[in-house]
Design a protein around this nucleic acid. Structure first.
Lengths: 117, 117
DNA sequence: CCAAATGCTTGACAATACATATCACTATGA
DNA sequence: TCATAGTGATATGTATTGTCAAGCATTTGG
């Protein structure tokens, strides 16, 4: 990628495209579900797992770590007696509400009759 | 799923949630890239492949078939002498522009400094 | 006739996600 | 006190998914 030679064919230049990267982040399995679940408040690991519904713990742990790394969610370990973990959206994460809402509107409008699949 | 009874454990009810389903559609690898590529006009298979950038033909064919099945894109085979295929967005597909735009805005705002990954 | 492009398909392989089991720890109830 | 259940994960093996490198039939241009 990012090789602007080849003048004849119109190669699309993906040198660094924020949209392309954003799509790559959001298109990973469970990512959008996780963000959606966290939109109504911080959750613990198992709580999040239940809210997401169907994601296995290994995958969830991996996703959550990556999203934390990307600054989309934050992980806090409360040093109370039973040490509880809490996952919450950062500002960047909260901002994804607009994306979820857009998907929501689209889904309600065009996905009401599934039937096939 | 879709068992609203069970008073003991608080199972999350995903009987049919349009947002959940919409996310499931859009979270598959390459799907959003394909839709984004088709937003600026219909394309043939190889043309689409180049526009998407990096998706292998097997996956692309599979995605495109599923999206056609879901009524998001339409496939037309022009019976001209070299029979050309053309993939285009349906109305439902066009409507996803709002989602792409939301992702675009988010990406520009929060993904400018990637560094890590 | 040969190279190149279109629109895919195939088959072997690798990466990913899955179910399931388990762990250490802490409450809670009997 | 001692099982039971909840927390926050991690480990195992298997199944699903995506990828790579080819190839094929077709047609057009040189």
């Amino acid at each position: 990628m990012a090789r602007p030679i080849t003048s004849e064919t119109s190669e699309v230049d993906h040198s660094f495209c924020p949209v392309y990267e954003a799509i790559n982040v959001l298109q990973e399995k469970w990512t959008l579900h996780i963000i959606r679940s966290l939109l109504d408040g911080p959750k613990g690991f198992n709580e999040l797992s239940r809210a997401v519904g169907g994601c296995n713990p290994a995958t969830l742990a991996q996703r959550v770590e990556k999203l934390e790394h990307l600054g989309i969610i934050s992980k806090t370990i409360h040093s109370t007696m039973p040490p509880r973990t809490s996952y919450a959206l950062t500002e960047a994460g909260q901002a994804l509400q607009a994306v979820i809402e857009a998907i929501d509107r689209w889904g309600r409008r065009y996905l009401l009759e599934p039937a096939a699949q």
